[in-house]
Design a binder for these strands. Structure first.
Length: 630
DNA sequence: CTAGGGTTAG
């Protein structure tokens, strides 16, 4: 893929810095005709009913005397804000644009975006004063609601009142496009603003554009823009660096992140913040570099930067993911001792950590603790617990939790349903699962995802309800639902498990007519099918064909082959196979190993294979994927 | 006097 943006950066380098405000205004208007087609003056979505308002807005300061800034700071409830707004609109003369702006800002801070937009509309209706600060807040509200389009409409509308957008307004819009993943349009806007000198980008605007580039994973271009802004005399600050450092960490390029970190601190003398450290610590932990993460914590101490809730949550989560939920709990206790309140995220991570370990008693303990400490569990909390109970087949506990979800007024989402469906099928309660599957759609209006269908199909097959599975499978096809290779793999495997080899073969041969290509899993499944039927020759043939059809055999393939050969009494080939696995660096999974040992102890296999088998047992901690994960 | 950008979870 070519990178047009990089080439454009070169062009941008040659643009001069001066701006001419009169020219700027003209070009701005021209630019709106060209750039923002669809945000036209005639048809702005939000303001379709509003007539031209060009009356000058005189603000009389006497009207502001009863509205000191502190009044707006004190607003904590939406109702208070609305009440104050009503009072303000009834004053004669009306309070200044500043006062209205302060009110809108208070409403926005409470995240009542649509309400702020509504208040602005009311302001327009009574011709209340507004300026670029006011419109910028309202534009931000539009952007936060993923309606950047309407944000542009407000810019266009503002023109009619002589409100000229500035670099802050444009940064807000740029951020809106990025929030909506419209990176190409964001790039276009950014370049246009520079080329047409509509505004001189400042550090916030550059940082916003850099965030956008990072978001789509083009970190090199983001770094190029970092260098460019520096060249153009706009000094990147700690936020600019944090944005890139965080992105590099998330893309598993922690060393590059550390390089940039050093450059920032040592070269540019920019002090890191707790956010910088949080990104790096998270990156280091998730790549298993605990020592380096610990060094970062020491670094924080040296810099006298104290850990915040997010730092602790990162540590708690990382420990949980490593299976060290007990240590994670210790970290939470340290939080409490140092006077920091663990939040919902802390408890959720910890509960999930214990659930992953299958320690439901501890998970429940934390669950109770969070409730005692006044935290309200959310859908994430319940999903972890449900998942934990389901994995242990403690379905009654799971159902009890599920009941609590609805009782507590928490809306179960599709993941919640997927989890409980999987649990019900696991214990063979197909009827309940089917009822729930219907209920989620009819009652809660939650559409099943591809994942849901996979769970249901697999569940039905595992419970020997192949006909039910097949009819759902056909129904999916008729309804143009995505029938991907994964679904086919499930059906082939399921049919074979139900003893219907002919059905499995038929579904397999359907693949090509659907334009689907078998993948490694398909081959693994088919090899297993052949072995189940005692078709050793066919199994071996498919194995040999795999690499040629772009399906390179993996560890699972070898384990399937191993078990298939053992079950079919083909002991002669085992030694060679094990040696090949050793050469490829593959491990034997638990069930393969136990079969090997059984056959060695009964004398079907030679003693010498015991040593070789032992070498193929995975090291402590990481288990080889077992057969179920085909 | 009033507006914009960066970090955590199934």
């Amino acid at each position: 893929m070519e990178e047009p943006f990089q080439i454009e950066i070169e062009k941008v380098r040659s643009v001069t810095h001066e701006t001419n405000s009169q020219l700027q205004m003209k070009m701005l208007i021209n630019s709106f005709k060209g750039t923002f087609i669809g945000y036209s003056f005639k048809n702005p979505f939000l303001f379709s009913g509003i007539q031209t308002i060009l009356a000058p807005f005189h603000s009389d300061s006497t009207s502001n005397h009863h509205l000191p800034s502190s009044v707006f700071d004190k607003i904590t409830k939406l109702d208070d804000a609305l009440q104050l707004f009503d009072q303000m609109t009834q004053r004669k003369p009306l309070p200044s644009a500043v006062k209205f702006t302060q009110l809108l800002q208070a409403v926005t801070k409470m995240q009542h975006y649509s309400c702020a937009i509504d208040l602005f509309k009311q302001m327009e209706a009574i011709r209340a004063p507004a300026n670029v600060y006011t419109t910028t807040i309202v534009i931000k509200c539009c952007c936060q609601m993923s309606c950047t389009r309407e944000g542009f409409a407000i810019v266009a509308y503002g023109f009619r009142r002589g409100i000229v957008p500035n670099v802050i307004t444009f940064s807000t819009l740029l951020n809106g496009l990025i929030l909506e993943d419209r990176i190409l349009e964001a790039e276009r806007l950014f370049k246009k603003l520079i080329k047409m000198k509509l505004c001189e980008p400042n550090v916030v605007m550059y940082s916003t554009m850099i965030k956008g580039l990072c978001k789509v994973g083009i970190n090199d271009t983001a770094i190029a823009l970092l260098r460019l802004m520096d060249e153009r005399g706009c000094k990147p600050n700690v936020i600019t660096h944090n944005t890139i450092i965080d992105s590099l960490c998330k893309d598993e390029m922690v060393d590059d992140a550390l390089k940039l970190f050093n450059e920032m601190v040592l070269h540019k003398g920019i002090l890191p913040t707790v956010v910088t450290y949080n990104s790096l610590i998270r990156g280091l932990c998730s790549s298993g570099r605990w020592d380096d993460a610990s060094k970062m914590l020491t670094g924080m101490e040296d810099e006298r930067i104290s850990l915040d809730v997010i730092t602790y949550n990162i540590l708690v989560d990382a420990l949980c993911k490593e299976g060290m939920a007990e240590d994670a709990k210790a970290v939470m206790n340290i939080m409490v001792e140092t006077g920091m309140d663990p939040n919902l995220v802390t408890y959720n991570s910890l509960i999930d950590g214990f659930c992953l370990r299958g320690d439901m008693r501890k998970a429940k303990e934390i669950f109770d603790l969070m409730k005692i400490r006044g935290h309200v569990p959310d859908v994430v909390t319940y999903s972890s617990l449900l998942n934990g109970y389901c994995k242990k087949s403690e379905i009654d506990e799971a159902l009890h939790m599920f009941q609590e979800v609805t009782e507590k007024g928490v809306t179960p989402d599709v993941i919640t349903y997927n989890t409980i469906l999987q649990g019900l099928f696991r214990v063979g309660r197909c009827k309940d699962a089917r009822e729930l599957f219907n209920e989620m759609q009819a009652h809660n209006h939650i559409l099943p995802t591809a994942f849901t269908y996979r769970i249901v199909l697999e569940g039905l097959c595992n419970n020997h309800q192949l006909d039910e599975a097949l009819s759902l499978f056909r129904l999916m096809g008729e309804n143009k639902l995505e029938l991907d290779i994964v679904v086919y793999n499930i059906m082939i495997d399921g049919a074979s498990k139900c003893g219907k080899f002919d059905v499995a073969k038929a579904v397999f041969s359907e693949l090509s007519s659907r334009g689907l290509h078998p993948n490694v899993r398909t081959c693994n499944v088919m090899i297993r099918c052949f072995f189940r039927e005692g078709l050793v020759r066919e199994a071996k043939e498919l194995f040999q064909k795999m690499a040629g059809i772009d399906c390179v055999p993996n560890q699972v393939t070898y384990n399937v082959l191993l078990q298939g050969l053992l079950k079919n009494g083909q002991h002669g080939m085992i030694k060679m196979l094990l040696e090949e696995m050793e050469g490829q660096g593959f491990s034997v999974d638990a069930s393969s190993l136990s079969m090997l040992i059984d056959d060695i102890s009964t004398g079907s296999l030679d003693d010498s294979l015991l040593k070789l088998s032992g070498k193929l047992v995975p090291k402590e901690g990481k288990e080889a994927p077992c057969m179920e994960s085909i």
